[in-house]
Amino acid sequence: MTEGGLLVHRLRAPFGTAPGLEDISFEVAPSERLALVGASGAGKTTLLRAVAGLGPGTAERIEVAGREVGALPAERRGVVYLQQTPLLFPHLTVAENVAFPLRVRGIRGSRVDAAVGEVMEALRLGGLADRRTQSLSGGQRHRAALARAIVARPPVLLLDEPFASLDPVLRHEVREAVRVVQEGYRPALVLVTHDLDEAGTLADRIGVLLDGRLAQVAPPRDLFTRPTSLAVARFLRLPNSVPGTIRPDGSFESVLGVLPVQDPAAPGPGIAFFPADAVRIAAHGAVAACVVELRYRVQQTTAVVALGDVRLEVPLDGGRELSPGVEVRLTVLPGAVSVFPAP
């Protein structure tokens, strides 16, 4: 692996008395961002805590910056795990909090002041050095916790749902702080999130944790367009799925007609999944459908159309005027369909 990153090989970790995580392996290169997504209880936090040495778990290898750390206690792993709620030390000022990792490493004097000053400046905490943590706003607390986490420049940073329970303004503020951290000294960063859009925006790769296993790890574009299993496709809640039949020649036949498939499955009943923008309204589309509902969002307005019992959500181009009951024609982008055998 590249020196400076994180390697986890065949990690197992229990959830209480349940089997828990099984055979988890992944790598994160220095300066890379890996987002872990999964349903509640999938084991995301358990995984981070096991890697950080704070929770139970065994692995064939856990390497940090090329060094085996699986048998080391948490404080010697070179991994900082940031919990969802920023846990600042209430008996210390903001600057003393940020200096904490340096002081416990025996660093004193001007080196501490310089490092703390630099990181606090980068995270816009400059004027808050002498403040008590209780007087900080939510965003300031998150930024202070981030500053404290990175001041000793750990090779690996684990963020457990750093944006959960934040309002949109605060979420933006903390997200920007994470970007600053990442651009500042480029640690291998693993972050857990429930928000797929957030994962897609922030991460270089996304790992999907399902039923205690890492079902797929892929760049956002590949994951969102090419889920490798029905479970992942369902977890991603791709907006459009259509039942049909996988034909012997590998194509897929459904209410959308016969569609070519890049990675055909075995013939038989199947389900096709399409990314949000793979089905479009086009004047000369091959399939007729009826608009049943319009959905307005800040980013994109979509129309829900019906083809018999099947409902599809398709994007609306700017300026297109539609209303429920209108008939439209649909076209499917070639190669955008993922087909899996029906369960």
Binding site: A52, G53, L54, P73, A74, E75, V79, V80, Y81, L82, Q83, L87, F89, P90, H91, F100, P101, R103, V104, R105, R148, A149, A152
Partner: peptide
């Protein structure tokens, strides 16, 4: 809240440092 001890350990403090620099000041 024992998570604050975990936070300290994760930031590089030994159990002894965690006890004297985090736990004891909090339970003064």
């Amino acid at each position: 809240d024992s998570r604050i001890e975990e936070e300290s350990r994760s930031l590089g403090a030994t159990p002894r440092q965690t006890f004297f620099h985090v736990v004891v000041p909090l339970i003064r």
